[in-house]
Design a protein around this nucleic acid. Structure first.
Lengths: 187, 187
DNA sequence: CAGTAGACTGACTAAACAGTCGGTTTTGGA
DNA sequence: TCCAAAACCGACTGTTTAGTCAGTCTACTG
């Protein structure tokens, strides 16, 4: 019963902000949805921006952890990247609210540049993996960030498709084919 | 001097909405920026939504035209897709405000579902081209929409990179390599 | 039990918002 | 030159917003 209200606020905020966007959701609505007075919301978070940034940090951290979760029996660059691809797509499908929320964050002035920079660190192992892959000649010799952006683009494209055609979510053969297409992009 | 004010409003609206988002830009600010009274804005556009939808239609139409612009000496599926890829990236770079505006539209409730559907027609030739390409075995045998989404993802990834590293915009060799990577995704 | 620090409350405020309206100016045809 | 219609104006309205504050409740300490 200690930090219950604070968590309720974060939960309600995620739900509403993911669905309606940042500017489309009022603090009053979040408080009401959390079963809490507006004063309580502003007791735990000085401003709406602080609330959103708190969520951003929490979700980004969770995403990085899920993304880099090792899988037993994975060896070699190709498997490693397959694992990461699988982890990301699974994470986005299991946590759609979080995925939607992060999409809202991408271009939002609510997320401070400082926080964005701070979060980059969490993906350092990913960067190192890519650097190694280029050095080994396993993937194309293109700027690291370009490869990352294009790969992220294919993943988001696949996710957009899965969300539009939910019956495809369990089609493991399609997953494999989509991964191979993404792999072709960078290898 | 006929429709000057209306155009000024559309111009100012594009500039501000692209930069600040839909909810972050007030009608009063748009009117002020256009050098026009708020009453004038609402004389030309019944609501803020109508203004945004008018812009959406205008820009989407222009984008489709640019995208499908034929290039002399283009023959074969590979060249055709190369041309489209080049057209899209060039369009987005030359019309960054329009590109940003369209990104805001993607998940916005301001754009009516009806209008979205109406605009799909403009991209019919693109769909037919892809269908033909699959039938000819030139590109992977995957659902059309999946291929489109993944290809669009690589393009947006490339654009994100170019916007982050503007010095790369004129590196034609990089453009070619990026295109080949995108082509590898679907072929 | 008394004292107190932090959690919690909701009515309130000042600013910002989309949209209105009564009136003025501009335009173009007769 | 006159007239009607359309363009234009900006002060105004009712609503919604993030954030405040004076005070109440709760849980723990000595």
């Amino acid at each position: 019963m200690k930090k219950e209200k604070r968590d309720q606020i974060l939960e309600a905020a995620l739900e509403l902000l993911a669905a309606q966007g940042f500017r489309g959701t009022s603090t009053a609505e979040i408080a009401r949805h959390a079963g809490v007075a507006t004063g309580t919301l502003f007791h735990h978070f000085k401003t709406k921006e602080e609330l959103i940034n708190t969520l951003y940090l929490k979700i980004k951290t969770n995403m990085a952890e899920s993304l880099l979760l090792p899988s037993p029996g994975v060896s070699g660059m190709r498997d490693e990247l397959h694992n990461i691809w699988h982890n990301y797509v699974s994470w986005a499908l299991e946590r759609r609210q979080e995925y939607r929320f992060m999409k809202h964050c991408e271009a939002s002035p609510y997320i401070s540049g400082v926080l964005r920079k701070e979060c980059e660190v969490k993906f350092l192992p990913l960067w190192e993996l890519f650097e190694q892959a280029i050095a080994d000649g396993v993937i194309k010799e293109l700027p690291l960030e370009l490869l990352m952006n294009m790969l992220a683009g294919t993943m988001d494209g696949f996710l957009r498709y899965l969300i539009a055609y939910p019956e495809a979510v369990n089609d493991k053969e399609l997953w494999e084919k989509a991964y191979l297409a993404a792999w072709d992009t960078i290898r």
